[in-house]
């Protein structure tokens, strides 16, 4: 029961991370789905990865919310769907980055306070 609750809390805590990372990557250049998955894997020092296929729902919802837009582009004789950030996505990225930094600093402070208390 405790394990379930911890898993759920962790899921909620990490829920916004894919959106944050996707928007951050797309703010640098337009990318296609697999490229985004690879970039997240590489740029997070291989500590984060997504189950295959799960990036597309995130991209579709971001597109429906107007934060990213997609366009087809020819590549090696086939067409790929490339995603790019929109002005609304840039604002969302700023907001999420601010929130994430606050959480990160808070957790960092709490962990350091724990260390200080132990010593």
């Amino acid at each position: 029961m405790k394990k379930e609750a911890a898993k759920k809390a962790s899921q909620n805590f990490l829920n916004g991370v894919p959106i944050l990372l996707v928007l951050k990557l797309l703010s640098e250049k337009e990318m296609y789905g697999y490229e985004i998955v690879r970039a997240i894997h590489e740029k997070t020092g291989r500590s984060l990865s997504f189950p295959e296929g799960s990036i597309y729902p995130t991209l579709h919802v971001l597109e429906e919310d107007g934060h990213v837009k997609s366009r087809e582009k020819a590549h090696n004789g086939r067409t790929r769907l490339y995603y790019a950030i929109t002005p609304s996505g840039t604002k969302k990225l700023e907001q999420l980055t601010g929130e994430w930094r606050k959480v990160f600093q808070g957790v960092h402070l709490a962990l350091d306070a724990g260390k200080a208390g132990l010593s």
Partner: peptide, 21 residues
């Protein structure tokens, strides 16, 4: 093998949408 079986893929996709709303 990396893509996984159809049921797992479908689960990943629906979970992906569900988490966003």
């Amino acid at each position: 093998r990396r893509m996984g079986d159809t049921e797992t893929l479908a689960d990943n996709i629906f979970r992906g949408y569900a988490r966003r709303t």
